[in-house]
Design a binder for these strands. Sequence first.
DNA 1: CTAGAGATTCTCT
DNA 2: GAGAATCTCTAGG
Length: 213
Amino acid sequence: MIAPPDRTPLPREFFDRPVLEVAPDLLGRILVRSTPDGPIAVRLTEVEAYDGPNDPGSHAYRGRTPRNDVMFGPPGHVYVYFTYGMWFCMNLVCGPDGTASAVLLRAGEVVEGAELARKRRLSARNDKELAKGPARLATALDVGRALDGTDACAAGETPLKMLTGTPIARDQVRNGPRTGVSGDGGVHPWRFWIANDPTVSPYRAHAPRRRSS
DNA sequence: CTAGAGATTCTCT
DNA sequence: GAGAATCTCTAGG
C-alpha cells in the first residue's frame, strides 16, 4: 500500500539551498503544468545539477547574458533555454538570488493528463517515452520560451507549480556523469535518477557533430 | 538493444 | 561562424 502523493506546493525555501542538496531531493516530486485544456503532471525521475560560475558545464560559466539571466535570479523560478535549433529544456533555479545554480529536469513519469501529453509527443511509442529526456519532458508539458522566468513557487493559479509528491529514499537514488555536457570532462557525477525506473533516459556520451563538407 | 548522422536556429565569439 | 545541457530515424546485432 503506497501513500498517495502529497499535493502541497513546495515552498521557496526548498530551492534556497545548495544545488547538490536540491537535485536529489527533487526526485519523486511532482511538476504540474496548467493548460487551457487541463493539467499535465509529471513525477520527476531524473535530474542534473549545474553549479553556476564554478561549473564549466553550466550556461552561467561565462557570466550573465540575456539568455541565462533567470539563472542569476531568485530560487524557485524556471529557466527555459532553446537548443540544437529545435528543442526547449527546463531548469529550476536554486540557491539565493545571484548564485546562478539550477537543476535541469531530464525525465519524468506522466501521472496526470497523459492524453494531453500524447498530443504533444506524437512520436512517443508508449507512455514511458512521453517525458523520457529533457526536451521530451518540456515538449510533453508544452513548456517553451514564453515560460522562461516563471515562478514555480507563486501562490494561486500559475502555469507551472512544484508539488511535494513523494520523496525518494536515499538508497533508491543513483548518480553518475552528466549527459551530453562538454567542458567538464565528465568529472562531476551530478546526474541523479531513481534506481530501475523505466522512464529514465538512456545515457548518451557527448559527440559534437561534424559539418557536412 | 547500440551506433551514426541529419535536422534546424539561436547565442555568443 | 562554430557549436549547442537533443531527438528521431535508419541500420545492424
